[in-house]
């Protein structure tokens, strides 16, 4: 893997990189900036890192066209890992992010806490009205914290089927709470 070029080395290539941008690249770019922005101090820094990703892609002799998303993700993740190792910046780099980060929610928002108590009835009713199999699988997975492989084996189902039942239950709950709101 080539060493990472610092920003000064990247900037002259900006024009060439931009010319490479297809609609697909723009889509990826937005996600990459958002991804880096949560991990570094400033937005310009996140934009520089995004440029670095495209620079790496252009320089990669094994680059495929069209690019698979997974390929871009791997390059971006490796870039961040390298940066983390080299600069010893924030140890939180390796820490997994909670879903609240992605949604921009404060986990201790008092409204969220109160909401939980107010809607117990509706939640319990919606769960009770699910089809038997869906209700059982969802209850075991979400409330009893039983592993989906264990559930699948016990009921003689595939793991994928267990996932589908959990998804259906979540969709039903989301729908009934949407109606309530």
């Amino acid at each position: 893997m080539p060493r990472v070029m610092l920003s000064e080395g990247v900037k002259p290539l900006n024009k060439a990189v931009r010319q490479e941008l297809t609609e697909n690249d723009r889509r990826l770019r937005r996600a990459l900036v958002a991804f880096f922005a949560r991990r570094v101090q400033t937005l310009p820094e996140a934009e520089d890192l995004t440029q670095d990703v495209f620079f790496r892609i252009i320089r990669d002799p094994k680059r495929e066209a069209p690019m698979a998303d997974a390929y871009v993700f791997r390059i971006a993740a490796n870039l961040l890992r390298d940066k983390g190792r080299r600069e010893r910046v924030r140890t939180s780099y390796r820490e997994a992010r909670a879903i609240e980060d992605f949604l921009g929610i404060d986990p201790l928002d008092p409204h969220r806490v109160a909401e939980g108590r107010e809607n117990l009835d509706l939640v319990a009713r919606t769960i009770a009205e699910l089809p038997e199999k869906t209700r059982r699988i969802f209850t075991l997975y979400r409330i009893e914290h039983i592993d989906k492989r264990t559930i699948a084996e016990s009921f003689g189902l595939s793991v994928r089927m267990v996932e589908i039942h959990v998804q259906r239950a979540l969709e039903a709950l989301a729908t009934s709470m949407e109606a309530f709101r």
Binding site: L120, I127, L170
Partner: peptide
């Protein structure tokens, strides 16, 4: 939200 409330219930 549905996931969280199911846990709270």
């Amino acid at each position: 939200r549905a996931w969280r409330m199911a846990g709270a219930a």
